[in-house]
Structure formats: structure tokens, C-alpha cells
């Protein structure tokens, strides 16, 4: 056992756990933050994505000890941090995922939303290609990617005060609405 000094969602925490545990294990089984999902547990699926100093990383592959000294943000932190910045209700990414129905089983959502949050923090006006690239490490096995990309585009459009781009399936190859 060892004591980990972690900064999670803005809180400085001391938590005791076996020294070889991953960050995901400490988050889920010691801190009760079960929003980060344990999917493949070997770095394929992205369900365990958390933000480390603002960049998305896989908490199932990150030893908890090597997260010391870095700011960790899990899905549980998105709404409180949005409010702390003066926002109202849920983070705009969460709100857009909700309105677009960007989920089916919901297992990939925490990782998806954190990857999307990191993208928008770095690049407030990403193109559809940049959104695809940023979400490439998050797998949705319900294959609901269309609404997920649409949700991120909705965030971008609303921040800029413009009409959101139509999803690819809403028009045929000639641009005619279907």
C-alpha cells in the first residue's frame, strides 16, 4: 500500500491503495468515481478516458502514482467545473450530448465527452475532420457516432451563434435533403 496525493476535479486528495494500481482502479474502487468506465482495460476502447492537465489519457494504462502532480478531471468534474467558471447547469458538451441523443447504452459517453471537452478547450472551432480525429480513440459499440459528432458540432455552432452543420446522413450525395 502507499498513499497517493492526487488532484481530482479540483480537490487535493490523499488516498491509500496498492502501489501497483492504475489510476482507473483508484478512481473507481477507492474514490467511488465510477463515471470513468472499465471497458477493455488494455487501452483499446477509450471508455476510461480522463483529462490529465487538460489532455485526454487512458486511466486504465496510467499508473496511479504517475498521476501525482497532475490535475485529473473525470466526468464527475465537468459540471461542477462548468459552474465554477460561472456557467449554468451541465457543461455545454454534456448538454449537447443530451439534446442530440448522442448515446445508446451510454458506456462510451464519459470518455467521449471528455475527449470532446479537451478538443474544444484547445480548438473552439474544429472542423468535422478534426472532431473525428479527436474522438478517434473512443469506441462506441452501439455505433452511434453520427449523433456524437453532431453534438460536438452543436457546441461549436452555438458558441459561434450560427446554425449547426447538418449531419452527413441528412442529405444525399447531391446535397438534397432526405
Amino acid at each position: 500500500m502507499r498513499v497517493f496525493r492526487l488532484n481530482v476535479n479540483g480537490d487535493d486528495l490523499e488516498v491509500a491503495a496498492p502501489a501497483h494500481w492504475t489510476l482507473l482502479e483508484v478512481l473507481r474502487y477507492e474514490l467511488g468515481l465510477i463515471g470513468s468506465k472499465q471497458g477493455c482495460d488494455k487501452g483499446d476502447c477509450g471508455a476510461c478516458t480522463v483529462l490529465l492537465d487538460g489532455s485526454p489519457v487512458l486511466s486504465c494504462l496510467r499508473l496511479a502514482a504517475t498521476a501525482e502532480g497532475h490535475a485529473v478531471v473525470t466526468i464527475e468534474g465537468l459540471m461542477p467545473m462548468h459552474k465554477a467558471r460561472g456557467g449554468d447547469g451541465a457543461d455545454v458538451v454534456q448538454d449537447a450530448f443530451d439534446r442530440c441523443g448522442a448515446l445508446q447504452c451510454g458506456f462510451c459517453q464519459p470518455g467521449m465527452m471528455l475527449s470532446a471537452r479537451a478538443l474544444l478547450n484547445e480548438n473552439p472551432k474544429p472542423t468535422r475532420g478534426e472532431i473525428h480525429d479527436a474522438l478517434a480513440g473512443n469506441l462506441c459499440r452501439c455505433t452511434g457516432y453520427t449523433q456524437i459528432v453532431q453534438a460536438v458540432e452543436l457546441c461549436v455552432a452555438e458558441a459561434a451563434g450560427v446554425e449547426p452543420a447538418q449531419p452527413a446522413w441528412s442529405a444525399d450525395a447531391n446535397g438534397k435533403k432526405v
Partner: peptide
């Protein structure tokens, strides 16, 4: 190489 999270790590 891999996806964004893995390239960050």
C-alpha cells in the same frame, strides 16, 4: 500511432 489518448501517453 494509435489514437489521441495513447499518443499523449
Amino acid at each position: 500511432i494509435a489514437g489521441p489518448q495513447l499518443r499523449t501517453m
